[in-house]
Design a binder for these strands. Structure first.
Lengths: 258, 258
DNA sequence: TGGACCTCGTTGTACATACAAGTTAACCCG
DNA sequence: CGGGTTAACTTGTATGTACAACGAGGTCCA
């Protein structure tokens, strides 16, 4: 039974503060109320307020230090687990219409590479999914995903052209809990260049991902290749907060600071 | 005057715990002592202990939840601000010998791109630094960095072939506090391919960086191009902890989990 | 023997308090 | 009028307490 009646107070606070920033009510540079004022407004003690502010700070949304009330940094906010894991959710949240075209959904014995990524013996049954992902109808990413058979089996009851595999699997109870990502660059192979409409051997931004359950079992492994003129990754770090990573639609320059 | 006599308790605790993991005394999967035991060991209250554990958790070093003592996750630990900002520090910490060869250190009016990155008017005096970075003597990265004149001026008193510009500037009192990074992929231009010893138009992993003071003034802007077979970026995220980003030496595969 | 149940230990959440450290703004004096 | 000092305010750090939520392991009964 799912028991979601009690949302912790500090989380409700951080959600509320996040919403005020997102709505534009609190603009960049806005000096937010002191902890004491927030306590008074929400009728709580300092603990939850500080916990909520710490969460926003770790996301890079606010800055500030001892003696000075926090300020809205206006930086790119860090992305939650599901937003970072799901292309569809990320695209929708960024104001684009995500799309997809499925080339292949196949069950076959795992080849050596797939077996290594899924952490299973070679020739174990696996399910491979090959899709082209679109942003507002424009080809943006080639997605080569493999699943263990018991997870991939679910996909044959799902229209992979309809939307988010991540959301579907989560709704089916697949306990995705952690992700490990490696980002590098590769040259487009003939298939990539044709699908993404770029010259052959053009540089692509590649994210290799392994998604795991809490106990470490690999539930999904993927090789995603992005058109770097369309999608990049962005990081904010500072002396206080370590670097959270976000995937960002690249508007052909890195100098979007106003 | 630098006043560093008092290191906060929770930070000493997290440093100690981090050290135990790094030393191998606490291996992957090790179930660490309960909060009560840690309190007893260090003679503190639960507050600092929880603060230290929260720091480790946000770095992805430990996992765990309600009712279950935390466990060492064995994941790639997040990198601190200075480790992530400094190629030299990162390389040394990863077990490599960093090296560098300076092509050019020049003072000239900022061109349009540099001016935009540094957030100054065009033709403002700026200092450009062009260096090849090495790992164990192997070309790994091309670094094109620009500084405002008052910061770059310091470099003319520094041997840019000797080591870390980041550490030098920090020691000179330059208050680097925040970084904004954008990662994408580009094709090697003729100069890149010659310096990095890769074919022309080979894909390179690019990190564009703007380093700022706490008040937002840009103190450094850089375009770093990595050989993707030598350096990649790595991210761990989870339902609890958002994604910190790390730069990782790529050992030609992404499946280094044992 | 096996399964349901309960208890105990552990972490998450929340409140109250106190002091230290840094920032800001007002104030006073030259 | 300007500059330095001071006082008030704000956040960081730390302690203590209490209860809720959850997991694991043992116990008891069928």
């Amino acid at each position: 039974m799912i028991n979601r009646v009690t949302i912790p107070l500090h989380q409700r606070l951080s959600d509320e503060l996040r919403a005020r920033v997102a709505s534009g009510r609190w603009q960049r540079g806005f000096r937010l109320p002191s902890e004491a004022e927030l306590c008074a407004e929400f009728g709580t003690s300092r603990g939850p307020v500080r916990q909520a502010l710490a969460a926003l700070r770790s996301e890079g949304l606010i800055t500030g230090g001892r003696g000075r009330p926090p300020e809205v940094s206006g930086a790119v906010p860090a992305q939650s687990f599901s937003t970072f894991m799901s292309f569809s959710e990320w695209a929708a949240g960024s104001g684009f219409t995500p799309g997809q075209h499925t080339y292949e959904l196949a069950r076959r014995p795992a080849c050596a590479e797939v077996a290594a990524m899924l952490d299973v013996p070679a020739d174990t049954p696996a399910v491979d999914l090959l899709r082209l992902r679109l942003l507002d109808g424009v080809p943006a990413m080639i997605e080569r995903t493999s699943f263990p058979a018991d997870v991939g089996r679910l996909l044959f009851d799902f229209d992979t052209d309809s939307g988010s595999v991540f959301a579907y699997l989560r709704d089916q109870g697949v306990p995705l809990a952690r992700g490990h990502h490696v980002v590098d660059a590769v040259a487009a192979d003939p298939f990539d260049s044709d699908a993404l409409q770029v010259p052959e051997a053009a540089p692509l931004l590649r994210e290799r991902r392994r998604s795991m359950a809490a106990d470490g079992r690999v539930l999904e492994a993927s090789d995603d290749r992005y058109r770097p003129d369309l999608v990049t990754f962005s990081i904010e770090n500072s002396l206080e907060a370590r670097a959270p990573l976000t995937r960002v639609h690249s508007t052909n320059d890195a100098t979007e600071a106003t």
